[in-house]
């Protein structure tokens, strides 16, 4: 039994569903609302099997009324329940952002800490399969920008389960963003590194702890979500050329583990941020700023480089999309270019 557990591999979708199910079994205040999360198990399979296990009272298919059920999550949380509310694609945030941005994120603060809103918003992010401008965005920087939302962006099944259980137990709003291209779906190609060993028992991973996915001495790649998997493949290529990249998986954006980033950059002296969100005003700029603020404590060997979507909506056509969303080769090329740079 214990050996069987040891080698058990789950896809990220299975790990998320399992984490939610275990918390629902433990805590009857937890319930899930969202479009197509019942019979269909969620478009991206994040609630697979839960309807059978918990029934329609706790696994609630909603109308296509994002403002309605996001607002309802806030109201139910204020009454002591612990809703998980699925926004099918993060791109649909536009429909319900008032509930999220002006209420969910701020009510605790505006109440002087008197009110708690333990809501988890789960949502699918990312492109790579030609779903075009309204179904391919990452947008985590939008959510991380407003104070009051914790933002979780896992890159693999093990982390996803631990972070999901942590999210459900948190008394604050948490936006849990899963990239479609690492969920291990049977109908979308995915990066296989995201399917990994997942313990059967419940466990948590604290927020604000980045993970060093790969040790290296030559440069630091700070990244998250599916880009972690791409960066690992890029690092393999680079290693064959004698360049040792250290990869930092941020895992959560809010809270952000600055120390791990700074420690690594202090060691390598070179920073590349690899991001699938838009370039400007986002994660890559934030990480660069954190390093810039510490230049009296650490020594860079080269200017910071940023790789992200070059401030264009995600285009539909394959060659356009492959250009706009950074791919493995682009990460490797940026790393090589960074190795050629010096400060003088």
């Amino acid at each position: 039994m214990s050996t069987a557990n040891k080698v058990r591999k789950l896809s990220m979708a299975e790990a998320i569903s399992e984490g939610i199910g275990q918390e629902m079994a433990r805590d009857e205040r937890v319930f899930v609302m969202g479009e197509d999360i019942g019979k269909y198990g969620g478009i991206f399979s994040a609630t697979t099997g839960l309807l059978d296990q918990f029934g329609p009272e706790r696994i609630m298919d909603t109308p296509i009324s994002e403002t309605g059920f996001m607002g309802a999550a806030i109201g139910a949380a204020a009454e002591g329940l612990r809703p998980i509310s699925e926004l099918m694609f993060v791109d649909f945030f536009g429909v319900c952002f008032d509930q999220i941005y002006n209420h969910l994120a701020k009510n605790t603060y505006m109440s002087g800490g008197a009110c708690k809103f333990p809501v988890v918003i789960t949502t699918g992010i990312g492109g790579g399969y030609n779903d075009a401008a309204q179904h391919s965005q990452c947008l985590y920087a939008m959510f991380a920008h407003v104070p009051g939302l914790k933002v979780v962006v896992p890159s693999n099944a093990y982390d996803a389960k631990g972070l999901m259980i942590q999210a459900i137990r948190d008394d604050n709003p948490v936006v849990f963003m899963y990239h479609k291209g690492i969920m291990g779906l049977s109908w979308m190609s995915y990066f296989e590194g995201s399917t990994n060993e997942v313990p059967a028992e419940p466990y948590t991973i604290p927020f604000g702890q980045a993970k060093v996915v790969r040790d290296g001495k030559d440069l630091t790649i700070v990244t998250l979500s599916q880009m972690v998997q791409k960066s690992v493949l890029a690092a393999d290529k680079l290693a064959a050329e004698g360049i040792e990249a250290e990869i930092i998986d941020l895992r959560t954006l809010v809270p952000l583990d600055k120390e791990t980033v700074l420690r690594s950059v202090a060691k390598t002296g070179r920073l590349l941020v690899a991001d699938e969100d838009y370039l400007s005003f986002g994660v890559s700029g934030e990480i660069a700023a954190i390093v810039a603020e510490q230049l009296n404590h650490l020594q860079l060997k080269a200017p910071v480089r940023r790789l992200a979507v070059p401030d264009v909506p995600i285009p539909f056509s394959r060659p356009l999309e492959q250009f706009a969303i950074p791919q493995v080769d682009a990460i490797a090329a940026e790393a090589r270019a960074l190795m050629q740079l010096t400060l003088d």
Partner: peptide
């Protein structure tokens, strides 16, 4: 294409 390949079938 109508959108030079930027839009796709829903746009």
């Amino acid at each position: 294409g109508l959108g030079k390949g930027k839009g796709g079938h829903m746009h």
